[in-house]
């Protein structure tokens, strides 16, 4: 990322503005355009943000895992920052999914939590993402990056096997999107707006964290450069 894009972050500000506008529009649609569900009542309105957040989480975490693999094969600071910010954003959305989900589940299933396939998978993904970020925070910088990248790339195929395992249990998750379930046009429009809003919101968070991490990397490189210069100057000055 060039220096000018940090000093004049026009693209980022535009993204932020559009995302904010869309989130407000989505809130308006959820409140006034979509009618309350006939059977589930008003609590069904959680659906719009819940499902969108789940999609954002899956996209962030899977790209985080894939980018980690790329960084492991061909190390690059930029890819590392992209992967790390993706996992952080994915973790934030996992928390959103797991707080909005139980609120809905309580009303429609009668329980805050069930060991249902997608709930279990989301919970395990959250734990894995948190563990990867924890290692990243605690390990020494160079090795921590590699360890976290290795575990993050392993997490994607393992997550698939978790999915297979919990799916064999069977469950009661509503298959709204696969079943073509949304009938009312108001609900359809609301879902589309909410999906777009959350997608742009996720992109904003991702970009924001990416920029912060890139700045941290530049700061670190500058520090290294300066200390190297110091050493050189001391050598040239001769022993005192």
């Amino acid at each position: 990322m060039s220096t000018s894009s940090f000093q004049r972050p026009l693209g980022f500000l535009a993204l932020l503005a559009v995302a904010t506008a869309l989130v407000l529009a989505a809130l308006y649609c959820v409140a006034f355009v979509a009618r309350p569900d006939v059977t589930l009542g008003i609590v069904q309105k959680i659906f719009y943000f819940h499902v969108s957040s789940a999609i954002a989480m899956m996209l962030c975490l899977s790209s985080g895992s894939l980018l980690s693999l790329v960084d492991l094969v061909a190390p690059s600071d930029r890819v590392d920052a992209l992967a790390r910010s993706a996992i952080e954003t994915g973790l934030a959305f996992a928390v959103l999914v797991l707080t909005s989900g139980p609120l809905w589940a309580r009303k429609s299933w009668g329980a805050w939590w069930t060991w249902e396939p997608r709930l279990t998978l989301t919970l395990l993904l959250l734990l894995l993402a948190a563990a990867v970020l924890g290692i990243r925070a605690l390990a020494p910088d160079g090795t921590g990056r590699k360890i976290a990248a290795a575990l993050a790339s392993l997490a994607a195929p393992v997550a698939y096997l978790i999915h297979v395992a919990v799916a064999k249990w069977g469950g009661t998750h509503p298959m709204v999107l696969q079943g073509g379930g949304i009938q009312s046009p108001g609900m359809q429009i609301t879902f589309r707006v909410a999906l777009l809003a959350i997608a742009l919101f996720a992109a904003t968070l991702w970009t924001l964290r990416f920029r912060v991490l890139r700045l941290e990397q530049r700061l670190l490189n500058l520090q290294l450069e300066f200390s190297a210069q110091d050493v050189r100057q001391q050598r040239e000055g001769g022993p005192t």
């Binding site: 395990l124 734990l127 894995l128 948190a130 563990a131 990867v132 924890g134 290692i135 605690l138 390990a139 020494p140 090795t143 921590g144 360890i147 290795a150 575990l151 392993l154 997490a155 393992v158 096997l161 978790i162 297979v164 395992a165």
Partner: peptide, 22 residues
């Protein structure tokens, strides 16, 4: 992987158990 990481005793199960879930 964790042999040189701080708090490795805590981190090991944190990483291992979710990965062993299947």
């Amino acid at each position: 992987l964790l042999v040189h990481v701080r708090l490795r005793e805590v981190l090991l199960p944190l990483v291992l158990y979710p990965l062993l879930a299947p």
